[in-house]
Design a protein around this nucleic acid. Structure first.
Lengths: 146, 146
DNA sequence: CATGTTGTAACTACAATGGTTACAAGAGGA
DNA sequence: TCCTCTTGTAACCATTGTAGTTACAACATG
């Protein structure tokens, strides 16, 4: 099972808000860029609000960033999107037989190793900031200009 | 969504085969240690067979390792268990709007970063061998002896 | 030949995902 | 004031993966 696309959708949304500061970023408009349903966008934005990354103008609508793009790492977004329950990437099979020497100890042995693997992945995400994404996007956009 | 416990079940099974070389390791017996259904065990063993890590005695039954525990890394087992389709950990949302500058470029930008994160995780798994698991288990078993 | 095991199919229950419709509530403009 | 637009949320749906279960033909060995 892959990590839910909620994460990359969240990154997409935040990058959009950063690059289109002056647009009226409604869920409908954002959904047009992501190519999904406005409600899906609102759900993700709800999580980004909870994380304190964005706000939404009441009534008239439109989301905007409330943090500097340097202050948001991909790991922050990953956590905000809640794509892995409890933050634990690996699922260790539960209730192995405690009367079997292997069953009694396998969990403890695996736990430390798999946590290390998870942290290695998260450390890469921690090193990337929204600012880096936006910069890379701006470069590509510039390069593709006719 | 977490990574399927098929992976840790596979590690459990292989460790069991390594530590209990002389036992008659039927799917029923293994299932007793993992605490699951024999058919679940047979399915995982089927994948481990495909990967060339084990064989099963025809007729009489019982699985056994066909590789040295030093030759099997956790990454090998992870791949054999096929816990993430296509080997790609992150799912990038498909078909963003190519007419939007962000939509047209976000996939390319994310792809390289997320692949890097995935590889960091896999590199940790690659460093651990079944032998290390078995050694750690043996130590814990010894320590817990009354 | 009887026994025990495997491999596989088929079915189930359950959960997460992503999409969709619907609608009350709120803010601002005409 | 009323109309319009947007949001937040609930509810529902189809799809998919997971993990467990039953059932059974095929097969080797004692």
């Amino acid at each position: 099972m892959k990590i839910s696309s909620r994460f990359t959708v969240a990154v997409h949304i935040l990058a959009l808000l950063a690059l289109e500061k002056n647009a009226h970023c409604t869920s409908e408009w954002i959904a047009g860029s992501v190519n999904t349903n406005p409600v899906v966008v609102r759900r993700v934005i709800g999580q980004l609000k909870k994380a304190g990354f964005v706000q939404v103008r009441p009534g008239t609508g439109g989301a905007f960033l409330t943090k500097d793009t340097q202050e948001i790492t991909l790991l922050d977004i990953y956590r905000a999107a809640e794509v892995v329950e409890g933050g634990e990437l690996f699922q260790i099979h539960e209730h192995p037989n405690p009367k079997c020497p292997v069953g009694a100890n396998i969990q403890a042995v695996l736990e430390v190793i798999l946590l290390r693997a998870q942290e290695a992945m998260e450390n890469v995400l921690r090193e990337i900031r929204l600012h880096d994404i936006v910069t890379a996007l701006a470069q590509k956009i510039e390069a593709n200009r006719p």
